[in-house]
C-alpha cells in the first residue's frame, strides 16, 4: 500500500489509541507525518508487530514510540542507540528502529551515534531534524544554522552546524538518506530501504518546528515552513545536473550513500562460530 491508500483502520492497527492519545505534539508538527510514514513502511514490509522494537531517547520526536503498538523502549536523553544496540545484539531476530531528534542524537548522544554507525549494527534510525530543542522550549541545537535565533542564542547562533548525513557516512553507516516531511512518499521509501538494509541506516528527516524555530526566526507557520523545506530540497538526481551556485541554500535529499559493509551482529556470530570450530581456543 502507498501513502494515500492505507486506510485509517489499517493505521489504527499499529497505534495504541486507548492509553496514549491525544499526542503531545503541537498542531502542524512534522512528527506525526514521520510516524505515518513509518507505519506505512512497516505495513508495506509486512513486519510482525511482535518482532519490531522501537527505541527512542528524550525530546518531542522521542515520544513517538509511546503511541505505537510494538515493543517500545522510551529511554534516556541521547542514549537510544546504546539501548538499541543491547536489544539488537541480544536478539538479532528483532527489527530495531530508533526514533531520535537532532539534539538527542547529535549533541548528548553524539558519541553513541558515531559508534553505532561505526559498528554498522542493523538498526534503522529516523532522525527527525527540526534544528532546535522543542521540548525544552527552543534552545539551539548542533543543527541550528549560524545566525538563527534560539532562547539560548538570543543574539543569533554563532556555533557551526553539524551535518548528520556526512557524520554518518564518515562514521561507517551503510545506508544514509535524507528525507523531508513534505516529500512523504520518498520518505516512506527511504524508511523501507533503511529497514531492508542489513546494517546501520540513517534517515535524516528535515522537519518543522514552527512553535519555536519558526516563530523566533519569523519563518511563518507550519505550512510556510514545510513549503520552505520543499523549496530548499533538491534530490540527489537533480543536484547532479546543477551548478554549485544553484545549490547554495539547498540541501540534498534521497539515498545519499549506500554500501554493503558487513554487519555487527553477523560478525559477532561468525566469530563465535570460528571459536567453537576451533574447540573454544
Amino acid at each position: 500500500m502507498t501513502a494515500n491508500t492505507l486506510q485509517s483502520e489499517r493505521i489504527h492497527h499499529y497505534l495504541r489509541p486507548k492509553k496514549s492519545f491525544p499526542n503531545v505534539w503541537c498542531a502542524g508538527c512534522g512528527n506525526g507525518i514521520v510516524m505515518g510514514a513509518l507505519i506505512r513502511a512497516i505495513d508495506h514490509l509486512g513486519l510482525d508487530k511482535d518482532k519490531v522494537v522501537v527505541v527512542s531517547g528524550i525530546g518531542c520526536s522521542s515520544r513517538m514510540p509511546v503511541y505505537l503498538d510494538f515493543n517500545t523502549l522510551h529511554t534516556t536523553h541521547g542514549r537510544a542507540l546504546a539501548f538499541a544496540t543491547g536489544v539488537k545484539l541480544a536478539k538479532p531476530n528483532l527489527k530495531v528502529i530508533v526514533i531520535t531528534g537532532d539534539g538527542d542524537a547529535l549533541a548528548i548522544g553524539g558519541n553513541h551515534f558515531i559508534h553505532a554507525c561505526r559498528r554498522n549494527i542493523d538498526i534503522t534510525t529516523i532522525l527527525i531534524d527540526n534544528k532546535i530543542y522543542g521540548m525544552t522550549g527552543g534552545q539551539f541545537a548542533p543543527t541550528t544554522p549560524e545566525g538563527k535565533i534560539a532562547t539560548t542564542a538570543p543574539y543569533g547562533n554563532y556555533e557551526k552546524q553539524f551535518d548528520p548525513v556526512q557524520l554518518a557516512i564518515g562514521s561507517g553507516a551503510s545506508y544514509v538518506a535524507r528525507g523531508t516531511v513534505y516529500h512523504v512518499a520518498p520518505l516512506e521509501r527511504m524508511i523501507i530501504g533503511g529497514i531492508q538494509k542489513k546494517g546501520f541506516a540513517l534517515i535524516d528527516t528535515i522537519s518543522n518546528c514552527h512553535t519555536y524555530y519558526g516563530r523566533f526566526n519569523k519563518e511563518g507557520d507550519a505550512v510556510a515552513m514545510i513549503n520552505d523545506i520543499r523549496k530548499q530540497a533538491v534530490s540527489v538526481k537533480a543536484a547532479a545536473t546543477m551548478s554549485e551556485d544553484k545549490l547554495i541554500g539547498k540541501f540534498l535529499t534521497g539515498v545519499i550513500h549506500e554500501t554493503d559493509a558487513t554487519e555487527f551482529c553477523d560478525e559477532y556470530q561468525a566469530m563465535c562460530e570460528r571459536v567453537l570450530a576451533k574447540g573454544g581456543k
Binding site: 527505541v55 529511554t75 539501548f83 536489544v87 541480544a90
Partner: peptide, 9 residues
C-alpha cells in the same frame, strides 16, 4: 544502556 536493552530482550 546496552545491558538494560538486552535485559528487556
Amino acid at each position: 544502556a546496552s545491558i538494560i536493552g538486552a535485559s528487556n530482550a
